[in-house]
């Protein structure tokens, strides 16, 4: 899947649907609570109307509603706790700068030839 995403043009790749770890926990709890409640309500709806289809429609409607909540990566719900990565240590910067110096030297030598 990541390979397919990498093949997309750059503007589409910007539309990332990823959410942070705390957001994943909240999203999972959200659909569990809503759908379980919908199942209980749906049972009583079906029992009172004596139509099993109405119970199923209740659950399916709740599933669509839940999808609107948890599928888009809402920044105010699921992206409030981004991971803070460690900053790269100094040594790497030093070595990379030395590499640049070497490249510069090579270029210079080529020019002289």
């Amino acid at each position: 899947m990541d390979g397919m995403i990498a093949m997309l043009p750059a503007p589409l790749q910007q539309l990332s649907s990823h959410i942070d770890f705390q957001g994943q926990k909240v999203a999972e709890r959200t659909y569990q609570v809503i759908l379980t409640l919908a199942g209980i309500i749906g049972f009583f709806v079906g029992y009172s109307t004596q139509q099993l289809s109405y119970a199923m429609y209740t659950v399916m409607g709740a599933a669509v509603f839940t999808a609107l909540i948890i599928l888009p990566p809402w920044p105010f719900l699921f992206r409030k706790n981004p991971i803070v990565w460690q900053t790269p240590i100094e040594e790497q910067e030093a070595s990379s700068s030395s590499d640049n110096e070497k490249k510069d030297k090579k270029k210079e030598t080529k020019k002289t030839k």
Binding site: A27, Y31, L35, A38, G42, F43, V59, A67
Partner: peptide, 29 residues
């Protein structure tokens, strides 16, 4: 749960569980 398809998959699977439970409750009633 980290990306869109994974969330859609979890939601669909749980929805089917709930529908199965409601159907079983209908049978028991």
């Amino acid at each position: 749960m980290h990306n869109l398809l994974s969330r859609a998959n979890s939601l669909l699977a749980f929805t089917l569980w709930v529908m199965a439970a409601v159907t079983a409750a209908c049978f028991l009633s």
